[in-house]
Design a protein around this nucleic acid. Structure first.
Lengths: 234, 234
DNA sequence: GCAAAAGTGTTATCACTACACCCATGG
DNA sequence: CCATGGGTGTAGTGATAACACTTTTGC
């Protein structure tokens, strides 16, 4: 069914920037490439867009193939179209980023891929333009996280305020005043304090919180000033 | 040079959402389609990505073909990949939006295309998913304009504060207090008041302003709270 | 009892909003 | 001289940021 004549048809790939948070650092999930070219080198998890598959289906398939996870937060990042970005054959790539609860992942790893988590600021050399994709994802995540409560996607169901704060501090690479941070996050009304405490990382213990899922859904696109001095972003 | 075997190659198009401001309304430039299918129907200006062309080159080529303009602000909006979005043959489309000074355009229209400006909120029925693209562009423009001084791209070199304000009011579809607006915009230090005035739309005349290009370049990505109550955005 | 992390209140500053009057000019 | 749109200042309010001490408990 080639209806537009004399036009170039091009391979279309999807690459996934899969991010997780281990309680200390933001991590990136990479695989050792299995495709014929550049075999063994580190790359983002990716794949070609199939004949009957749109981008959402494709990105979900690719994520599931590697992690077994479904229903995860994913967002289109950018379409990369440089002519030589894949030196073997021209391929345009639509990059998606996914935010996952890293602990969920560990349970259902697909052993067919050699995959590994790397601290996002200390990754091995990546193939093609994948480093550019990662850099753009970091920037976009920062930008969004400054105004929207998106980082909860990286946390387990129950989490503590100190955990939440170190997540924000890791992403914005600076430290916040814990009183102001606590007040600001509580004022969103998105958090529900639990009765129990997390007692591994301190003697006194820190209260667990859960998301108020109703409010979270309603406020996902709302503007919340979540970090101090957002004017210093770029 | 087909190196990845058994993979589907797909047509890749670029569609341009070309926006201008005529002093009153935000306008969208549409063309009557010349391609074999859906001939005569209104659509965004678009074209296929060529063999040796990346997205930036392609979008610039398409914009220039229609308007004769170069060096215009363009930004990737989103990649659309629905399987059936083009019913004739599967085509993924990378949408770009361009902000142009509408008066420049009028001088160098390409008569080969039947092109016309429409108020962005009152467009004819568009082919394929082009309306979805337009809606997304409107939303993104609003979002960006609330924090970044992007709307100057739509204005001529010299403009007045009342003109600037009606641009913002058009885009955000509400009216602002002119004292607060003026103060806020002046506080960005991006404006340089000229000696002369625009005297067509009022007897007293309104001062012309120019952009301080140095500062503008430096602040293009900076955060400026340009509109009241940005929390009401989504 | 002490070290280590959690939790909590107050104050000063700044940014934002709401609001009303005078100015310049062409007719 | 008056109608039209342009330009400017102030005061009240709310949000933000800076800051230090007390609590808990495992060792």
């Amino acid at each position: 069914m080639l209806r537009y004549h004399k036009q170039t048809r091009i391979l279309v790939a999807i690459d996934c920037i899969i991010l997780g948070f281990d309680g200390h650092d933001l991590k990136l999930l990479l695989v050792q490439r299995g495709l014929e070219y550049e075999k063994g080198k580190w790359s983002l998890m990716g794949g070609f867009v199939q004949k009957d598959e749109d981008f959402e289906k494709g990105s979900a398939r690719i994520l599931k193939e590697l992690t077994g996870l479904e229903g995860v937060y994913m967002e289109q990042l950018f379409a990369f179209g440089d002519v030589k970005r894949d030196p073997y054959e021209r391929t345009v790539s639509v990059a998606y980023f996914a935010l996952i609860d890293i602990h969920q992942y560990e349970k259902q790893l697909n052993a067919d891929y050699h995959a590994e988590w790397f601290p996002i600021n200390d990754t091995p050399r990546l193939i093609f333009d994948h480093q550019e994709m990662v850099d753009m994802a970091k920037e976009k995540l920062r930008y969004k996280a400054a105004f929207h409560p998106i980082l909860f996607e990286l946390l387990p169901e129950k989490f503590t305020l100190p955990q939440l704060q170190s997540l924000y501090e890791g992403i914005f690479d600076c430290s916040f005043d814990k009183r102001n941070f606590s007040r600001k996050l509580q004022s969103t009304k998105l958090l529900i304090r639990q009765k129990d405490k997390e007692r591994l990382s301190s003697k006194r213990g820190a209260y667990y919180y859960k998301l108020d899922k109703r409010r979270y859904a309603a406020n996902f696109h709302a503007f919340l000033n979540l970090i101090p001095n957002p004017g210093n972003l770029k």
